[in-house]
Amino acid sequence: MLESFQIIISLLDSTIRIATPLIFCAMAGIFSERSGIIDIGLEGKMLLSAFVAATATFLTGSPIFGLFAAILMSCSASLIHGFACITNKGDQVISGLAINILASGLTITLGIALFSRGGQTPPLASEQRFMPIDFPFLDQLSFVPVFGELFVEVISGHNILVYLSVLAVFFTYYVIFKTRFGLRLRAVGEKPEAVDTAGISVIKMRYQSILIAGMLCGLAGAYLSIAHGAGFGREMSAGKGYIALAAMIFGKWNPIPTLFACLLFGFLEALGVRLEGVELIWIGEVPVQVMQALPYVLTVVLLAGFIGKARAPGAIGVPYSKEG
């Protein structure tokens, strides 16, 4: 009994670690897509900012500087996306795909040119990273049964970006549903003509939304290379941007359900790693690939309307042109 409790605790702990970049990216996706801009480029933006975060931190020694460099990089990628599909009315999927492929090539090429380490950045020392924060009163709380352990192992002891990701969810919820800016943002994604008639610039609204998305992706990238990891490795985003996209759809473009989708997908991955080589009663060994494929399968099933309908914003993917 005690042992299985320990297993659950450690599973929840790794769930949170895995889910953090997904949460940032999925919130970024919500901002972008709620304003009508498809964002396939989450993956590439995260990869680019992970590289820039590690590089800037290595060169300056300051993770704070690395974090801002990452956000700047990710926002620049957002601006390219915006220039292509808002200003020039290009295809949003193609533009996002271009950013992803560009990110793969650029990070490896620059990494090799700068550091000659096969695309990796040099490892960062612990003072150059965002390290785990221990909450106060840990010693006293650890004696409390169940809750104490949960607090010490699961809630406490993560780096600052993990806590920021939770804040990002509430930020997203608040901005999108409780502010005038959010109301306009949703309107731009559903019926841009209406917003235009009200004298608000659709172009400006959409640029603002994708810039916020850029900032959030920057945080995800920085988490990968200077908080969770200690340096950049090639292709280190490893499809997380696409899982985040799936989580956003799974959460039906709503921040709170999306948070739970991210946690679910994170939990599935943690469970998959945990179950590797373990014989389960009745089922036998569950291949790790089943767990890897499950988020995608679930998203396909959901999108097909078998578990409630996921409806995308009305004007998504359509460039806005004024009449006449």
Binding site: I80, F83, A84, C85, N88, K89, G90, D91, I94, S95, L97, A98, I99, N100, I101, L102, A103, S104, G105, L106, I108, T109, I112, G119
Partner: peptide, 19 residues
């Protein structure tokens, strides 16, 4: 990997920025 970079740029300019 330089080729990936070129490929990304071609998709950007010939695809997303085609017009």
């Amino acid at each position: 990997e330089m080729v990936l970079l070129i490929q990304g740029l071609i998709i950007l300019f010939s695809g997303a920025l085609a017009y």
